[in-house]
Simulated scan of single mutants.
Amino acid sequence: MHQISRSFSCALPVLACVATVAAGLLAGCGGGGGTSTGTANVLLTDSPSCGYDHVYVTVDHVEISSDGNSWTSVPVSASLGRIDLLSLNNGTLISLGQTPLTAGTYQQVRLVLAANGNTAPYANSVVLTGSATEIALTTPSGQQSGYKIVGPFTITAGTMADLVLDFNACKSIVVAGASGKYLLKPVVSAVAELVAGKITGTTVAGSHVYAEQQSTSGPVVVTGTVADATTGAFTLWPLQQSTVAGPVDVVIVPPPSSGTAGYASYFVQNVPVTAGATTNLGMMTTLAPSSVYTVSGAVTVAGSAGAADLVAEQTVTSSGRTYEIASTSTTSGPYSIPLASAGPWLGTYSTTLPLVFAQDMAGSDVGIYDVTATDAAGSSASHLVNVSTGPTVVGFILSP
């Protein structure tokens, strides 16, 4: 068994998009009649991105609807300009604007982005890791009609209600084949803060930390963050309370420390989320070492080197659960993903800290990953790879 030392540290909230609704009561005159209204204060934050140094978006306005037909607009201050989503790390928030709202239940939020100009700096763009070149994001119909995020959430008169919109930059950017374009197709989830909670902890600085759940189509990353580069503190937020959405599993993927030296991945299963509360996982900084090897190769689309998004997943045979471990993208065919060669360490949440972990030594799990490449047309291919003894090379042939 492997133990993690105890701590009680706290971090700022995870990247997400937050709509804070401050509700106040405007009472009418005479016989008890009146109109209950509130104020929607929309703020922005983000989940971590992969393969990009910057992801810029410019929000024109936000719209909120109770029925999907009529919409109330939340104007955004022009002084905000474009926002680098990746600067909104570990809970940094930006207020977009405010508008009055009638108390009641709202079903949808719509995020409308500004249109790109003809030259950089663009309203919506990406800068690839290690590059200084800004690439415009193509935002098909969303610029005009907006990106819909399904509720519901409730505004109660005389109370404060927060709607948290988690903008997942990594999942929102699609590499568009041989055109060299990047498509922005926002993946945004909505959680009312009234039924949301946090998970905090401390681990190896720079680790990618995810809250994941299982589905019939594979693992779902509910939200994620990157542990603070100095302290290693992390916060996963917003998360819907477990009584509504069930518990989550926390996945910790440390960065390589030097060359092929690094750490094993850690999975904390069945972590509860309590509305308005914080679930602390304690100190998880003394992690088991592991060699880190790459799976690399090239992606071919319709017979030529092409662009695709790639995801690596790992399955724990004993529980039957599969976790997303890493993701990247390629614009011209070549790709590389670093993966731990050792089996992951498994733990189950407990209020007693430090948490206790045991290593997964199953031959079908140690260094074994399922890597999937998907192009902009939705064509995909998967390969089971083994990095338990060293790097491996795998090519993907996609035929959209």
Rank of each mutant, 00 (worst) to 15 (best):
T278L: 10
S341C: 06
G218Q: 09
S145E: 09
I135L: 15
T216Y: 13
Q144N: 15
I337D: 00
A27D: 14
D53K: 07
I397R: 04
A358K: 11
L15R: 11
G363L: 12
S296Q: 12
T286C: 09
V222Y: 00
G81E: 05
A16F: 08
A261V: 03
Q143L: 11
G38L: 05
A358P: 00
R110M: 06
A227V: 01
V57F: 07
Y210P: 00
I397E: 03
V188F: 04
T274P: 02
D375A: 05
I337P: 00
S217T: 15
S9A: 12
L355W: 01
S79T: 13
S172T: 02
L194S: 12
T72P: 04
A326T: 06
V311S: 11
W237N: 06
V366Q: 02
G197N: 04
P400A: 10
G395D: 15
L137I: 04
G224W: 00
L26E: 14
T285I: 11
L113R: 00
V244F: 13
A264W: 00
Q269N: 13
G218P: 10
S341K: 08
L184G: 01
G32H: 08
L236G: 03
R321W: 08
V150I: 14
K181C: 05
S79M: 11
H383K: 15
Q144E: 13
T315P: 03
V59K: 00
Y323T: 01
A78Y: 11
D166A: 13
L128D: 06
V175I: 12
T279A: 08
E63T: 08
H54C: 11
R321L: 10
C50G: 06
T348I: 07
L137S: 02
A136V: 11
M1I: 12
E324Y: 04
G246L: 06
T133W: 08
D46N: 14
V55A: 09
T392W: 02
V251T: 06
V57C: 09
G91R: 01
T351K: 05
A376S: 14
S66Q: 13
Q144G: 10
S350H: 09
D365S: 15
P238G: 09
G146M: 06
H61G: 04
V301N: 04
T279P: 02
G51S: 03
V112Q: 03
V295T: 13
G343S: 08
F234N: 00
T348S: 14
T317R: 10
V18T: 12
P247M: 05
S215V: 07
N116F: 08
V271S: 03
G117K: 09
M283N: 12
E324T: 13
V21H: 03
A307H: 09
N69S: 14
A275S: 15
Y263K: 12
S215F: 07
I64R: 07
K198T: 02
Q144K: 14
H61T: 03
I64Q: 04
V57D: 02
T372C: 08
P100Y: 06
A16P: 05
V14K: 01
A277T: 11
N118P: 08
P255H: 01
S141H: 06
G151Y: 13
S131D: 14
S47I: 05
N124G: 07
V356L: 15
